[in-house]
Structures are given as structure tokens and as C-alpha cells.
Design a protein around this nucleic acid. Structure first.
Lengths: 193, 193
DNA sequence: GTCTATACTTCGATAGAC
DNA sequence: GTCTATCGAAGTATAGAC
């Protein structure tokens, strides 16, 4: 949260490659595989350079998360301006890459306490924006049930979208088609009226 | 899946302590913290003994998972015999310890391929049993909506229950009360009729 | 069964040349 | 900025005494 802005000043492309390498490794092998040595190798530089751009591994992980979180907020803002914002929100929640990365950061937050606060901060901000938007969306169109409040719809989409992706990754599929079909119907029910 | 039954024969209490220590560390610091040295220290033995009971760390993790998975299946069977099976299923899905452990194993599955198949096997079996039971429960009582099929209710409870716990752990709470209240109403609506 | 001792690998991080 | 070289710590795993 503090004293790490120094490393975000550089305009170098090496920093960019280090961030990309970290994401790629986290997705392929999990956060435990994103070591300074492997990140450096993937970026095509020597390990010592990682510590030049990021004083320690926590700062690297935080930088990766912050960048992804901001991109997520941007995509959400974009989704809310589309013709079918509810559908766009659902598709964003079901985006595999983001869901898998978030899983890694949630696990990482278990023993990197600095990560935890950052995730919570992002999640609350992200959800706040979404609920505000949903309040308008659900009000404008006819809501498909007395239970469909902005809060409920927001949390439901986030939980279900991401967890289905994670189950898919593991090879679990029972019931997925039924639930996805139901949600699509709900979305169209609200939005195409 | 094969050639590991040898290690499950021992009746020793040391093996028991190693398994418990592994779970405790995974919950406190994440799977990456459950190293052979730390597990041994926590169990009060020397590191070499870990490899006596478990030829490698994968076997230890698998043993921990299999034991937890079986306990989970047992608790589910017990839940299904209670007066309010639907409520019992929801409470089991919301159980913090299980949800947090599953998160660790999902992350672990990302780079320990042997874990992945084991999780999928357990999840499909677990979900199959639950769907069969829900089919009866939802049929006996009045279902609270045309969307409440056994498959949908099963996947929804699993996704939402666990993800809410994970968000709680991170310090995310927006919308949780609303959703939990809604689900309790649904459960009672179905079950107290 | 449990230990000591150890081999070998990989980790994060730093110092200092270029 | 990027490198070489290196430190100390921690990891998995094995051999062999008790």
C-alpha cells in the first residue's frame, strides 16, 4: 500500500515482460511456480533483475494483481455501456483467465497478508459499482422475480460464474449446462423486455 | 490412484498427527507452507519420518484430500437423514473449514496434476449423490420455483456457499447478508411446507 | 519406527562490475 | 539497466545407525 510507487515509474519494457511472465506462470503452474528465477527465465532476463524492478516478491505479486484488478474494473465499465449490460456482466464473470487468476491470488492471500487487503479493496469497489449499475438495470427493465435485488444478483453472478469456471478447469461438469441455461434465460428475460 | 495403499495400512498415531499437521498448516498458511520440514515440526517428529509414511509430498497431499473427501461424503449422508436435509446441505456447503481447504486443493491441483483427477472424482460422486437426494426432496415438498431443479439447486448451493466463505475470509461482505437471507427463505419455503 | 546425517536442488536477496 | 557471482535459508529425498 505504501512505498512501492518508485517501481511503477519506469517505462521499460522489461518490467512489462516480468509482469506478463508472472501471470503466465501463475496460470500454468500456480502461484508457487512463479518464483523469481522462473519469472526471470520466462521474461528472458537474469534473476537479479527481478529484484531491481520489484524489491521483493510480494511487490511483484501486488503489481500483477493491481494491474489485473484495474483491467477488470475497466472491462466492467465497458460492459455496462453495451447494449446488454447484464449479459456482458455475466460473460465477464465467466471469463476463465480472470477466474483462475483470482483463485491463485485468493490462495496467495492465505500466507501473503499484504495481498489480502488488496483483494478486499478491489472486490468491494468492484461490487459497489456493479450493484449501483444493477440497481438501474433491474429497475429499468422488469425484474424476473421478487428476489432479484441488485445485491443478490451481483453476488450470485460473481460466485457462480467464477466457480463454474474453476470446476470446468478441474474437469467437473455435472449440472453446469442446466445452471448456465437458466442464467442465460434470466438475463434475456430481464434485458430483452 | 494406484500403488499407494501400502501407506494406509499403518495404525500408527504418527501418521495421524502428520495428516492433522498438514491440514492445520494448509489452513493457516496455504498449501505452499505445508512443507515436509514444517509438517514434521508441527507433528513433533523429524522430517525424515514424513517420507517414511509418505514416499513423497504428493502422496501426503492426496492422503489428506482423500480423508477429507470421505469425511465430507459421510457428513452429507448424515445431513440427508436429518429433519431438514436441504438446510443441512446448505450448512455443510457453508462450512468454513471445508471451503478453505478445498480452495487450497484447487490451487494445488494447478501444478500437482495427480490432485486434479482426485478432486474431480470426489466432486462428481458427491454431486451425484446430492442431486439424487435433491430430486426426492424437491419432489416431496413444493418447489419454490420452476427453476429449482435438483441440478441447479445442487450447483448453486455449492458455488455460493463456498464462495461466500472465501470472500468472508478475505474480508469481503457486501451483499452477503441479502443472499444468505434469501437462501434461508428458500430452504424454509421448500422444507417447512 | 524414529533418528542423524547428508546430498542435491532451488529459493530470495544482495554486492558489485559493466 | 543488466549482468556475474555469491550468500544463507529452506526445500525434497535418501542412506544407514539405532
Amino acid at each position: 500500500m505504501t512505498a512501492s510507487d518508485k517501481s511503477s515509474a519506469g517505462s521499460s519494457t522489461t518490467r512489462r515482460m516480468l509482469l506478463d511472465a508472472t501471470v503466465a506462470i501463475m496460470l500454468e503452474d500456480g502461484y508457487a511456480g512463479a518464483t523469481s528465477r522462473r519469472v526471470a527465465a520466462r521474461a528472458g532476463v537474469k534473476p537479479a533483475l527481478v529484484h531491481y524492478y520489484f524489491p521483493n516478491m510480494d511487490e511483484l505479486y501486488l503489481a500483477v494483481f493491481r494491474e489485473g484488478a484495474q483491467a477488470n474494473l475497466d472491462r466492467q465499465a465497458e460492459a455496462l455501456e453495451s447494449a446488454q449490460p447484464l449479459r456482458a456482466l455475466w460473460e465477464e464473470a465467466s471469463e476463465p483467465r480472470g477466474a483462475r487468476l483470482l483463485l491463485e491470488f485468493m490462495a496467495l492471500a492465505n500466507h501473503r497478508k499484504a495481498i489480502r487487503a488488496e483483494i478486499a479493496l478491489w472486490a468491494e469497489r468492484w461490487r459497489g459499482v456493479q450493484i449501483t449499475a444493477l440497481d438501474r438495470i433491474l429497475r429499468e427493465h422488469g425484474t424476473a422475480g421478487e428476489w432479484s435485488t441488485p445485491e443478490v444478483v451481483s453476488v450470485l453472478m460473481a460466485c457462480v460464474g467464477r466457480m463454474l469456471v474453476l470446476e470446468d478447469t478441474l474437469g467437473i461438469s455435472t449440472g453446469h449446462d442446466e445452471l448456465r441455461t437458466l442464467i442465460k434465460h434470466f438475463v434475456d428475460d430481464v434485458e430483452l423486455s
